[in-house]
Amino acid sequence: MNLAICLLLARRYVEKSHIRTVVEGYAGLSDAAFERTFERDKDELRAMGVPVETGSNNPLFPDEVGYRIRREEFELPPIEFNASETLVLGLATRVWESATQADQALAAVAKLRAAGVEPDPGRVEGLSASVSAKEPAFDTLWQATVERVPVSFDYRGEGRRVEPWAMSYRRGAWYLVGFDRGRQDSRVFKVARVDAAVTPIGRPGSFQPPKVDVEGLLSSLEPAAPDAEAVLAIRGDRAPGLRRRGHRVASSVALPPGFVAYQVAYARQGDLVGEVCAAGPDVLVLDPLEVRAAVGRQLAGLAGVS
């Protein structure tokens, strides 16, 4: 703290020997202890985002290294929020369920309060949001992404070396997008499948993420566009997931009372078979025969008949 204040107030680079005499706590130390403590303090300041700059005041003797902190790089610039922005900032501190990120969001809002912004939670009725991160590997991958540290981890039993570019929270699950060094290509990893033992294999900032279309890479996670159609008989108000995707059609066979035929588009037969089976006797496949047969096999396996 005192080191930072000293460097912040200085108009020029402060040499190490001078720092040692003026900064509280350094004066009584032996040479070796001072070197160690000073280096550690300087690294810690940088790690918490304090921009400690190295340079020399004397262009003729550039070896005389000194340190300083530029106030404009240290301080949060003036920032003002209108009433509705202030309101959402107040709510935002309550969103994270994961303690690490909740603390970080709270620390950010505390800095805004220190800068004179007064977020006011509790004025919005009937609204609450939460983001969770239960995945064991989440915290280390988040840190690595924020600090740009390349990492290695096991993914479904395979070793990967990855430069983490970005993370994305989609429908309750976290994904990591990065450059897979082994495969020399970008890859998307589901964080739930990353083994918790994530190891850093480089220094912070040791790679620069390219300007990639992260959303484009993640679009491979969305369901594929349907390219086939099936005709299903659905009982009454059952199986809304299938009904909403389809439209009513005439049936070629006489259906039991309460059933209506729907034409439903699908992308992967396996997914459709699972969905139809899950509905049990409430959904029947009329066409195509291939899908009907697959459903028949799965139901027969469950019913214990062959």
Binding site: E75, A92, V95, Q104, A105, L127, V146
Partner: peptide
């Protein structure tokens, strides 16, 4: 008086806050 303004956000603080805000924005 010489420490009248807070330190800038760390990347971690800024991202944690922005993700929380975006989640709220999708809801209201």
């Amino acid at each position: 008086e010489y420490l009248a303004r807070p330190l800038r956000f760390t990347p971690d603080e800024a991202l944690s806050l922005v993700v929380a805000l975006r989640t709220l924005g999708d809801l209201g």
